[in-house]
Protein backbone atom coordinates (compact mmCIF):
# COMPACT_ATOMS: atom_id res chain seq x y z
CA UNK A 1 0.00 0.00 0.00
CA UNK A 2 1.33 3.40 -1.07
CA UNK A 3 1.66 5.46 2.11
CA UNK A 4 1.22 8.79 0.31
CA UNK A 5 -2.01 7.57 -1.18
CA UNK A 6 -3.22 6.42 2.22
CA UNK A 7 -2.29 9.72 3.90
CA UNK A 8 -4.11 11.64 1.14
CA UNK A 9 -7.13 9.39 1.60
CA UNK A 10 -7.17 9.95 5.37
CA UNK A 11 -6.88 13.72 4.94
CA UNK A 12 -9.80 13.63 2.56
CA UNK A 13 -11.83 11.48 4.97
CA UNK A 14 -11.16 13.88 7.81
CA UNK A 15 -12.24 16.79 5.61
CA UNK A 16 -15.49 15.01 4.73
CA UNK A 17 -16.38 14.00 8.28
CA UNK A 18 -15.10 17.01 10.23
CA UNK A 19 -18.35 18.95 9.77
CA UNK A 20 -20.29 16.35 11.74
CA UNK A 21 -18.26 17.01 14.90
CA UNK A 22 -17.52 20.08 17.03
CA UNK A 23 -14.21 21.80 16.40
CA UNK A 24 -11.27 19.88 17.87
CA UNK A 25 -13.44 16.89 18.76
CA UNK A 26 -11.60 13.95 20.33
CA UNK A 27 -14.06 11.58 18.63
CA UNK A 28 -13.31 12.38 14.99
CA UNK A 29 -10.08 10.44 14.42
CA UNK A 30 -11.17 7.42 16.54
CA UNK A 31 -14.36 7.24 14.45
CA UNK A 32 -12.34 7.26 11.21
CA UNK A 33 -9.77 4.78 12.50
CA UNK A 34 -12.24 2.32 13.97
CA UNK A 35 -14.60 2.57 10.97
CA UNK A 36 -11.78 1.68 8.60
CA UNK A 37 -10.48 -1.18 10.75
CA UNK A 38 -13.99 -2.57 11.06
CA UNK A 39 -14.67 -1.97 7.37
CA UNK A 40 -11.80 -4.31 6.55
CA UNK A 41 -12.50 -6.95 9.16
CA UNK A 42 -16.29 -6.90 9.26
CA UNK A 43 -17.64 -5.19 6.22
CA UNK A 44 -21.31 -5.03 7.08
CA UNK A 45 -20.69 -3.98 10.64
CA UNK A 46 -19.43 -0.41 10.60
CA UNK A 47 -22.54 1.31 11.91
CA UNK A 48 -23.19 -1.31 14.52
CA UNK A 49 -19.58 -1.24 15.68
CA UNK A 50 -19.52 2.52 16.06
CA UNK A 51 -22.73 2.43 18.07
CA UNK A 52 -21.41 -0.54 19.97
CA UNK A 53 -18.46 1.35 21.38
CA UNK A 54 -20.24 1.36 24.69
CA UNK A 55 -21.02 -2.33 24.52
CA UNK A 56 -18.10 -3.14 26.76
CA UNK A 57 -19.44 -0.70 29.29
CA UNK A 58 -22.98 -2.05 29.11
CA UNK A 59 -24.24 -5.53 28.27
CA UNK A 60 -23.12 -9.06 27.88
CA UNK A 61 -19.34 -9.28 28.41
CA UNK A 62 -18.71 -10.01 32.07
CA UNK A 63 -16.90 -7.10 33.66
CA UNK A 64 -16.04 -8.83 36.89
CA UNK A 65 -12.97 -11.03 36.49
CA UNK A 66 -11.20 -13.12 39.10
CA UNK A 67 -8.18 -11.62 40.78
CA UNK A 68 -5.90 -14.15 39.05
CA UNK A 69 -7.14 -13.07 35.63
CA UNK A 70 -6.53 -9.41 36.48
CA UNK A 71 -3.05 -10.21 37.74
CA UNK A 72 -2.27 -12.31 34.68
CA UNK A 73 -3.36 -9.42 32.43
CA UNK A 74 -0.80 -7.10 34.06
CA UNK A 75 1.97 -9.67 34.41
CA UNK A 76 1.78 -10.99 30.86
CA UNK A 77 2.40 -7.54 29.33
CA UNK A 78 5.91 -6.26 30.04
CA UNK A 79 4.87 -2.60 29.62
CA UNK A 80 2.10 -2.97 32.22
CA UNK A 81 4.25 -5.09 34.48
CA UNK A 82 6.74 -2.24 34.62
CA UNK A 83 4.13 0.49 35.02
CA UNK A 84 2.28 -1.29 37.85
CA UNK A 85 5.24 -3.06 39.45
CA UNK A 86 4.48 -1.94 42.97
CA UNK A 87 0.75 -2.76 42.82
CA UNK A 88 1.46 -6.19 41.33
CA UNK A 89 4.05 -6.94 44.00
CA UNK A 90 1.62 -6.00 46.76
CA UNK A 91 -1.37 -7.57 45.00
CA UNK A 92 -3.08 -4.23 45.46
CA UNK A 93 -6.41 -4.94 43.79
CA UNK A 94 -7.90 -1.66 44.95
CA UNK A 95 -5.60 -0.03 42.42
CA UNK A 96 -5.35 -2.86 39.90
CA UNK A 97 -9.07 -3.46 39.38
CA UNK A 98 -10.01 0.09 38.31
CA UNK A 99 -6.92 0.18 36.08
CA UNK A 100 -7.96 -3.17 34.58
CA UNK A 101 -11.46 -1.84 33.81
CA UNK A 102 -9.92 0.86 31.64
CA UNK A 103 -6.95 -1.01 30.18
CA UNK A 104 -8.55 -4.35 29.36
CA UNK A 105 -10.89 -3.07 26.58
CA UNK A 106 -7.95 -1.19 25.01
CA UNK A 107 -5.13 -3.73 25.32
CA UNK A 108 -6.97 -6.97 26.06
CA UNK A 109 -9.89 -6.69 23.64
CA UNK A 110 -8.08 -4.36 21.24
CA UNK A 111 -11.01 -2.05 20.62
CA UNK A 112 -9.86 0.16 17.71
CA UNK A 113 -11.99 3.12 18.78
CA UNK A 114 -10.47 3.18 22.25
CA UNK A 115 -7.03 2.50 20.85
CA UNK A 116 -7.22 5.66 18.74
CA UNK A 117 -8.94 7.71 21.45
CA UNK A 118 -6.02 7.00 23.79
CA UNK A 119 -3.31 6.76 21.13
CA UNK A 120 -1.23 9.51 22.75
CA UNK A 121 -1.11 7.75 26.12
CA UNK A 122 -0.45 4.38 24.48
CA UNK A 123 2.38 5.78 22.38
CA UNK A 124 4.01 7.28 25.45
CA UNK A 125 3.33 4.26 27.62
CA UNK A 126 1.44 6.55 29.98
CA UNK A 127 -1.05 3.96 31.24
CA UNK A 128 -1.86 5.75 34.45
CA UNK A 129 -2.92 8.82 32.51
CA UNK A 130 -5.08 6.62 30.29
CA UNK A 131 -6.77 5.11 33.34
CA UNK A 132 -7.35 8.51 34.95
CA UNK A 133 -8.86 9.97 31.79
CA UNK A 134 -10.74 6.89 30.60
CA UNK A 135 -14.26 7.60 31.79
CA UNK A 136 -14.50 11.37 31.08
CA UNK A 137 -12.76 11.12 27.69
CA UNK A 138 -14.95 8.22 26.59
CA UNK A 139 -18.14 9.93 27.75
CA UNK A 140 -17.18 13.10 25.90
CA UNK A 141 -16.41 11.20 22.69
CA UNK A 142 -19.62 9.15 22.92
CA UNK A 143 -21.79 12.21 23.42
CA UNK A 144 -20.22 13.79 20.34
CA UNK A 145 -20.86 10.64 18.32
CA UNK A 146 -24.49 10.57 19.50
CA UNK A 147 -24.86 14.15 18.25
CA UNK A 148 -23.12 13.36 14.94
CA UNK A 149 -25.31 10.29 14.38
CA UNK A 150 -28.44 12.47 14.55
CA UNK A 151 -27.21 14.66 11.71
CA UNK A 152 -28.44 13.95 8.20
CA UNK A 153 -26.17 11.82 6.04
CA UNK A 154 -23.70 10.89 8.77
CA UNK A 155 -23.96 7.13 8.18
CA UNK A 156 -24.09 7.61 4.42
CA UNK A 157 -20.85 9.62 4.61
CA UNK A 158 -19.14 7.07 6.87
CA UNK A 159 -20.23 4.27 4.52
CA UNK A 160 -18.83 6.18 1.54
CA UNK A 161 -15.50 6.70 3.28
CA UNK A 162 -15.35 2.98 4.13
CA UNK A 163 -16.29 1.95 0.61
CA UNK A 164 -13.56 4.16 -0.85
CA UNK A 165 -11.10 2.74 1.65
CA UNK A 166 -11.93 -0.82 0.65
CA UNK A 167 -11.28 0.08 -2.98
CA UNK A 168 -7.66 0.76 -2.02
CA UNK A 169 -7.28 -3.02 -1.65
CA UNK A 170 -6.87 -4.49 1.85
CA UNK A 171 -8.18 -7.99 1.49
CA UNK A 172 -4.93 -9.82 2.01
CA UNK A 173 -3.92 -7.93 5.15
CA UNK A 174 -4.65 -9.00 8.71
CA UNK A 175 -6.47 -6.70 11.11
CA UNK A 176 -3.23 -5.93 12.87
CA UNK A 177 -1.43 -5.01 9.64
CA UNK A 178 -4.26 -2.64 8.71
CA UNK A 179 -4.08 -1.06 12.19
CA UNK A 180 -0.34 -0.54 11.93
CA UNK A 181 -0.52 1.05 8.47
CA UNK A 182 -3.38 3.29 9.50
CA UNK A 183 -1.69 4.36 12.70
CA UNK A 184 1.46 5.30 10.84
CA UNK A 185 -0.44 7.20 8.16
CA UNK A 186 -2.68 8.96 10.70
CA UNK A 187 0.33 10.46 12.39
CA UNK A 188 1.01 12.32 9.14
CA UNK A 189 -2.37 13.95 8.69
Amino acid sequence: MDEKKLVAFLKQSRKILVDFFPSGSPALLPVIFSSLVWAVTRRAEVKKKILEVKVWLEPETLKNKPAEFVLDFFESRPELKAAYEEEIKNRDFRALRPAFRALYPVLGLMDPFLEKLFSFELKNGDYRRLVAGFRPRLEEALSEIQAAVLRKNFWKTVDQVCAEFLKLGWTLLTEDEVRQLLKKAMEKI
Binding site: K49, V55, E60, T61
Partner: peptide
Protein backbone atom coordinates in the same frame (compact mmCIF):
# COMPACT_ATOMS: atom_id res chain seq x y z
CA UNK B 1 -20.98 -15.93 20.69
CA UNK B 2 -23.20 -12.89 20.27
CA UNK B 3 -20.53 -10.22 19.89
CA UNK B 4 -16.96 -9.49 18.93
CA UNK B 5 -15.98 -8.33 22.43
CA UNK B 6 -17.38 -11.46 24.05
CA UNK B 7 -15.66 -13.60 21.46
CA UNK B 8 -12.32 -11.92 22.25
CA UNK B 9 -12.92 -12.07 25.98
CA UNK B 10 -13.62 -15.78 25.63
CA UNK B 11 -10.36 -16.25 23.69
CA UNK B 12 -8.50 -14.40 26.42
CA UNK B 13 -10.04 -16.79 28.93
CA UNK B 14 -8.77 -19.74 26.88
CA UNK B 15 -5.23 -18.31 26.91
CA UNK B 16 -5.50 -17.55 30.62
CA UNK B 17 -6.55 -21.16 31.36
CA UNK B 18 -3.67 -22.43 29.25
CA UNK B 19 -1.16 -20.39 31.27
CA UNK B 20 -2.61 -21.49 34.59
Amino acid sequence: LPGLEIHRDNDNQIVFCYRR
